[in-house]
Design a protein around this nucleic acid. Structure first.
Length: 816
DNA sequence: TCTTACACGTA
DNA sequence: ATACGTGTAAG
C-alpha cells in the first residue's frame, strides 16, 4: 500500500486537524488532506455561510489501499447526492472503512479571513490508542486526534436532530455545530495480536444437518421464478428463509449466519412472461453477512427451534437519509439473481468468526430475482396467497381491499365507458390486475385463489403451469408460517455444509475463480439439487469443491473441523496492516485476515467475511464504530468491544445512557459501515483480501489495493471467495446483535463489554429461548454493568450519528 | 424503472 | 393500541 509519508501523523495533536487549514499537519495524511481540501472547497465554505441544503457526501479515493469519505451529518435529508463516479466505488469505501467522526469547528477569524473558510475540523470521537501505521500509512482514529479532547468532551457533543450536531457545553449551552463524519479506511500493517484472550473452543463432534423450512413453498415460488421486492427501507423475504438444524453438539456454541450472494453475473429482464438474461450484471453491492441475533447459542438451543432470518431485509438503497445502511439490510441490485446461503460456525464468540470454519448450506430453490416491482403476476399472486401480511389483497370473502378497489374502478370505468365508451382496454386492465390472477396459488388452501380468478396467466414460463398442483401441499398457504417444508423428510432437504475457513491460502485466488465459474454452472443446476452444501475448508482448496449445487445435499464436506486458526498473519497481509485492531479493541487475533482468508477459500458462495450483519443496529455500530465507541464512552473505556454492542436490530436506540446525539453519531458511523470487519473485527486488510476479493464487497476495497486490483475483475460469483490474501476487509459489515460478549481478552473486558442484553432474539419462530435471547451466554458478570452502560452509550451514539431513525428504533438495550 | 402514499392486514 | 409488513396505484 502506499506509504505516503504519513510519518508525522503520530505526532499530530488532537487539534491538528481541527486547525485546519493547517495543511502541514495534514500532509502527513495526504489522503486526508486531499479529502479535506475537497471538502472545504466544495462544502465547508458554503457551510460557513450557512447551513446548507442538501446533504452531501463527498468521496475521494485517496490511495490504492484506502480512501476517506466525508459526510456532513448536518444534513437533514438524504444523502442521495452521493457523488461518485460509480456506485461501486462508493461502496467500496463504504465497506472498507472505519469511521471517524469529526465536527467542524469554527475557525478563528484570523484563520478564516484569508480563506473564507469558516470551519475547521475537529474530531469528535477517536479511539485512544489509535495512530497511524508508518508502514502502510494507515490511519487510525487516535492518530487523528490523539488526545483530542477528553472523553467527556467528546461526549459533550450532542446531536440534535438528524441533521444537526450540537456541541453541548458544560454550561449546558448548545450551539449548533456542523458535523463532519469522516470515514477512513483503516489500514495497518502491524501484525494482529493473537487472540488469546478468548475462551478456547472445546473440541466437539458434530455433524450438522440443515433443513430448509417451507421448502414446498419455496419450490412453488421457484417454479415461477421467485421474485423478491427490494425497497428503499428494506423488504423482508418471502417466502421466509428459515431453517431447522440437527446434528449440532448440544453444548457447543454456534453462530448462525446467512447472506445473499449473486447467483450469476447476469442482469435479467422479464420479457414475454419470462425471465431472460439482459446483459451483464451490474457491479455487486457490498455484501453483508447477517448474523442471527441469537448467536452465539448452544447447539441445543438452535436445534430446539426453527431458525428464522426474517429480520434480514432486502434493499436497493445504498444509504438511508444519513448515508447509512441499516444493519439488517442487504443491498441487492434490481433485476439480478441472488442465492441466499446459510452458514453454521462453531464458535463461542463472534470475535472468533474470522478464525472459524464456516459450514455453508445452499438451497437452490431459494434463489430469486430482486425486483423493485413485481414482474410476474403469478409471483404476485403467490405472495398474496401465502404471505399473511398480504391478506388484504386476497380475494377471499372478506374483503380484499383490492377487490374493492377494483370493483370501484370497474364501476367507475363502466361509468366512464358509458359516457365515453373508450376503452375496451379498460376492461382488460381491470382484469389484468395482477393480484387477481390466480394461477396457481393453490397452495393456500383457504383463501387462496378462489376468488375471482382473473387470471390471466401469462403462462409464463412453461414451468409455471403447474403451480397449482403443488400448492395444495402447502399447508395453509396463506400463512407461510405454517408451512414448514422442512419437515422431517428431511434429509433431502438437509444440506451439508461445506466448510470453509476464513483462512485462505494465497493461492486461493486462482481457485476462487474456478469456483466462480463453477458457481455459474451450479446455478443452472441449482434447481435440481435441493440443497447444496458447500464445504470449503480453508486449507484444502479441494474442499471447496464445487460450490455448486450439484454436490447437493448429501455431500458434506466437513473437512476441516473448525479450525480455529488464527492465522498468523500472512505475510502478505502483514503489510496491509491490521492496525485497526487495536483501535477497535478487538482482540487482535480477531483481525480479519484470517477471517477473510477462510472465507475466501470457500467455494464461490463463500461468505465474505467483511460483511457481517448483525441483526441489531447496534452491532453495526460496534463493528464499524469500535473506535468511536470507545472514545465515546465516557467511562473512559478505552475501547469498546464490538462484542459488547449487541442490540436488537430494531431496538437500537434504546440506550438510555448516552446522550441522544451521541447515539446518533454512533449509528451513523456504523451505518457507514464501516469496515465490515473492520469494525467488528479489526482485521488487517489482508485477510480480507482473500475472502473478500471475490465478493463485490471485496471489490470495493480492492480497488484501493493494488493487489486487490488485480483481483478486481470481480468475480461475481463468489463474492466471498477471493483467494487473495490481501483483500481488504472492507466490504462487509458485521452486524449483529451480539449477545454475549464473551470474555474478551483482558483488553476487551477492560473496554467495557456491553451486555449484549438487548439482543433481540428474534428468533422468531417458536421459542426463542429466553436464554438465548438473553444472551446470557457469555457475559461475564463483572462486565455486565459496564457492558450495559457501554451498550447504552453505543446506542446513543449510534443514534446520534445516524441521527435518524431514532424514532424507529427502540431501545431495547436496557438491561432486562 | 423506481418511489411514494395508502389501505389493510399481522403481531 | 402501536408498530410494522404487504402490494397497489399513481407519480
Amino acid at each position: 500500500m502506499g506509504h505516503r509519508g504519513a510519518r508525522k501523523i503520530t505526532e499530530l495533536g488532537p487539534y491538528h486537524l481541527s486547525l485546519w487549514p493547517s495543511a502541514d499537519s495534514l500532509l502527513c495524511t495526504r489522503p486526508l488532506l486531499k479529502c479535506v481540501r475537497a471538502l472545504c472547497s466544495e462544502r465547508v465554505c458554503e457551510r460557513g455561510k450557512g447551513r446548507t441544503s442538501a446533504p452531501r457526501l463527498i468521496e475521494r479515493e485517496t490511495s490504492p489501499s484506502w480512501s476517506i469519505r466525508f459526510m456532513f451529518a448536518t444534513q437533514t435529508e438524504t444523502l442521495k447526492g452521493v457523488r461518485s463516479s460509480g456506485v461501486e466505488t462508493f461502496y467500496q469505501d463504504y465497506t472498507n472503512v472505519s469511521i471517524y467522526c469529526l465536527l467542524l469547528d469554527e475557525l478563528p477569524d484570523e484563520r478564516s479571513s484569508h480563506t473564507g473558510i469558516k470551519y475547521g475540523i475537529s474530531p469528535i470521537y477517536t479511539s485512544p490508542g489509535s495512530r497511524i501505521c508508518h508502514e502502510c500509512n494507515a490511519w487510525s482514529p487516535a492518530s487523528l486526534l490523539p488526545g483530542a479532547g477528553s472523553a467527556s468532551q467528546r461526549l459533550s457533543v450532542t446531536a440534535g436532530r438528524a441533521g444537526e450536531a450540537h456541541h453541548g457545553a458544560a454550561d449546558g449551552s448548545r450551539r449548533k455545530r456542523p458535523a463532519l463524519l469522516l470515514f477512513g479506511a483503516p489500514g495497518c500493517c502491524r501484525a494482529p495480536p493473537a487472540l488469546k484472550t478468548l475462551e478456547p473452543e472445546e473440541e466437539v463432534e458434530d455433524d450438522p444437518k440443515v433443513h430448509l423450512e417451507a421448502k414446498e413453498l419455496w419450490e412453488l415460488f421457484h417454479k415461477k421464478g421467485t421474485e423478491m421486492v427490494i425497497t428503499k427501507s428494506g423488504r423482508r423475504m418471502f417466502p421466509p428463509f428459515k431453517v431447522r438444524c440437527t446434528g449440532l453438539d448440544k453444548k457447543a456454541k454456534y453462530i448462525l449466519l446467512m447472506d445473499i450472494v449473486a447467483a450469476d453475473d447476469c442482469r435479467y429482464k422479464f420479457h414475454n412472461s419470462r425471465w431472460m438474461v439482459a446483459g451483464k450484471a451490474d457491479p455487486e453491492m457490498p455484501k453483508r453477512m447477517y448474523i442471527h441475533p441469537d448467536s452465539p447459542a448452544t447447539g441445543e438451543q438452535w436445534m430446539s427451534k426453527v431458525v428464522n432470518f426474517h429480520k434480514l431485509k432486502l434493499t436497493n438503497n445504498i444509504s438511508d437519509k444519513h448515508g447509512f445502511v441499516s444493519s439488517t439490510n442487504t443491498i441487492l441490485n434490481s433485476m439480478h439473481k441472488y442465492q441466499p446461503r446459510f452458514h453454521i460456525v462453531r464458535a463461542n464468540d463472534i470475535l472468533k468468526l474470522p478464525y472459524s470454519t464456516f459450514r455453508t448450506y445452499v438451497f437452490p430453490e431459494t434463489d430469486f430475482i430482486a425486483v423493485t416491482a413485481y414482474q410476474n403476476d403469478k409471483i404476485t399472486q403467490l405472495k398474496i396467497d401465502h404471505n399473511p401480511f398480504a391478506k388484504g389483497f386476497r380475494d377471499t370473502g372478506n374483503g380484499r381491499r383490492e377487490k374493492r378497489k377494483q370493483l370501484a374502478l370497474q364501476s367507475m370505468r363502466s361509468y366512464e365507458d358509458q359516457q365515453k365508451k373508450d376503452n375496451g382496454a379498460s376492461d382488460d386492465s381491470s382484469g389484468e390486475q395482477p393480484s387477481f390472477k390466480c394461477f396457481g396459488q393453490a397452495s393456500s388452501p383457504a383463501v387462496s385463489t378462489v376468488g375471482p380468478p382473473h387470471v390471466k396467466d401469462f403462462g409464463d414460463s412453461d414451468e409455471d403451469s403447474d403451480d397449482d398442483s403443488k400448492d395444495g401441499h402447502l399447508k395453509d398457504g396463506p400463512d407461510s408460517n405454517k408451512i414448514s417444508t422442512t419437515t422431517e423428510d428431511g434429509r433431502e432437504h438437509e444440506a451439508s455444509p461445506a466448510k470453509c475457513n476464513l483462512f485462505s491460502n494465497s493461492d486461493s485466488s486462482s481457485r476462487a475463480r474456478e469456483l466462480c465459474s463453477r458457481t455459474e454452472k451450479s446455478q443452472a443446476d441449482s434447481r435440481q439439487s435441493p440443497v447444496t452444501a458447500i464445504s470449503s475448508t480453508t486449507r484444502s482448496a479441494e474442499d471447496i469443491k464445487s460450490p455448486n449445487l450439484e454436490q447437493a445435499k448429501s455431500e458434506e464436506c466437513r473437512s476441516v473441523k473448525d479450525s480455529f486458526m488464527p492465522l498468523t498473519v500472512q505475510t502478505d497481509n502483514a503489510h496491509l496492516g491490521h492496525g485497526h485492531l487495536h483501535n477497535f479493541g478487538f482482540p487482535p487475533g480477531l483481525t480479519g485476515q484470517q477471517f477473510f482468508n477462510h472465507l475466501g477459500n470457500a467455494h464461490p458462495f463463500l461468505l465474505h467475511p467483511s460483511q457481517f450483519n448483525m441483526g441489531s443496529a447496534f452491532s453495526n455500530m460496534a463493528a464499524g464504530m469500535g473506535p468511536l465507541l470507545a472514545a465515546v464512552s465516557s467511562g473512559g473505556v478505552s475501547t469498546m468491544d464490538t462484542t459488547s454492542m449487541a442490540s436488537p436490530p430494531q431496538s437500537l436506540t434504546g440506550a438510555p445512557g448516552l446522550p441522544f446525539h451521541l447515539q446518533q453519531h454512533v449509528l451513523a458511523s456504523q451505518g457507514l459501515a464501516m469496515s465490515p470487519f473492520g469494525g467488528l473485527f479489526p482485521y488487517p486488510y489482508t485477510y480480507m483480501a482473500a475472502a473478500a476479493a471475490a465478493s463485490s464487497a471485496a471489490s470495493s476495497s480492492v480497488h484501493r489495493h493494488p493487489l486487490l486490483n488485480a483481483v478486481r475483475p470481480r468475480l461475481r460469483y463468489s463474492p466471498y471467495s477471493l483467494p487473495m490474501a490481501m483483500t481488504t476487509p472492507d466490504s462487509t459489515l458485521l452486524t449483529t446483535a451480539i449477545p454475549s460478549m464473551a470474555s474478551g481478552g483482558s483488553e476487551l473486558k477492560a473496554s467495557s463489554p456491553v451486555s449484549a442484553v438487548t439482543l433481540d432474539s428474534t428468533s422468531e419462530v417458536t421459542s426463542h429461548s429466553s436464554t438465548i435471547s438473553s444472551g446470557s451466554v457469555s457475559l461475564s458478570p463483572k462486565t455486565l454493568s459496564s457492558e450495559k452502560d457501554a451498550a447504552n452509550e453505543l446506542q446513543s451514539i449510534q443514534r446520534l450519528v445516524s441521527g435518524l431513525d431514532s424514532s424507529q428504533d427502540r431501545p431495547r438495550s436496557g438491561s432486562p
